[in-house]
Design a protein around this nucleic acid. Structure first.
Lengths: 180, 180
DNA sequence: AGCGCCATGTAAGTGGTTACATGATTGT
DNA sequence: ACAATCATGTAACCACTTACATGGCGCT
């Protein structure tokens, strides 16, 4: 599932420009997937080339032109087929955890800062996931509901764990006791 | 934190070959980071070039030669500095969640299979995290303990959520009711 | 006066994955 | 016999990131 396919998926929810799509990525996928303009715009160009989407150019006064993309029947078929046949890979690289793994090499102040910053990021994600849940009253969708709930559950578990066990990390280690 | 730096980090726990290091990646980082030979071997060559590690070639009979890498003082300094100054990014791309987000386009059988497979992967990760916790009795380390506990907490939360809420996904959607 | 939003795109660079190449030993 | 483990490496490829390029409007 590359950015191309996911753009196609988001376009099933309604026509959008590249700019709009980036926002959808941020609101819908923030907790588990990200995409920048550098991948979205080329993806849309490719999708238009292969007739999976159509593109309508719209002039606006006082604003830059927009290119509004709409999924075609061919595109919808392609997307359904991708969902049916693709094996989902789960690629994760948490530099936060990788660094914390080596906590014994990090001074307590720095550790506290790292945890606080990560906690703040998670709080932010939690807020957006809760906002996503709120929109479900208007547009019910089982997939969105499951994913939003999943994100909230995991994020809360992560925050709780960090608060409960952060003291493990900032206790003095034997090496640090010797140095002082 | 690229593979280079993490190889250096793992070498603080003792000398190892590239082959060994891959296993360490798998046991220590499986739940949040991955690296293949294609990144590990070039990383070690680079680290040796820049004197952050030394390399000792060991001939074995009946087995291929090994190259055992050891971290140098310069390497240890470099690693400590990396931990002190690097801003950790968390890059996650869960194709599983991305696909589930579009559950309304996926037939129930396929959804069940996707969830079962993901659950199995998580069970496997949980097992290895529990094994990691067991080794802590022998080699206590606050960072390892925190990360192992974190992984277990999150993984269990994910498994619980999936079992509790999977029914949301396989309930018939309005579109499917119309089709039948 | 300056920042942030709207809006699109390209080009160069990065870093990791996959496939290839080789081959003996040990366990089933 | 056959698969898995041990063991190292390269080269081509791929997908995404970052920096660059452009520019008006609206708010404070």
């Amino acid at each position: 599932m590359d950015v191309k396919t996911l753009c196609l998926g988001l376009l099933t929810q309604g026509a959008a420009s590249g700019y709009d799509l980036k926002k959808r990525f941020e609101t819908c996928f923030k907790s588990f997937y990200s995409a920048g303009y550098g991948s979205i715009y080329p993806a849309l160009a490719y999708l238009a080339d292969t007739d999976l989407v159509t593109c309508e150019e719209i002039s606006q006064d006082g604003r830059p032109d927009r290119k509004v993309y709409r999924i075609t029947d061919k595109g919808r078929d392609y997307f359904t087929e991708a969902l049916a046949s693709h094996q989902p890979a789960h690629k994760m690289r948490s530099e936060f955890l990788a660094m914390i793994f080596f906590a014994e090499f990090i001074p307590p102040d720095r550790l506290n800062k790292l945890i606080d910053e990560r906690a703040e990021e998670l709080q932010q994600i939690l807020k957006e996931l809760e906002a996503m849940s709120d929109t479900l009253a208007k547009h019910p969708d089982s997939g969105v509901e499951f994913v939003a709930g999943f994100g909230q559950t995991i994020t809360r578990a992560a925050l709780d764990y960090m608060q409960q066990y952060r003291h493990l990390l900032t206790k003095e280690t034997s090496a640090q006791r010797q140095a002082s």
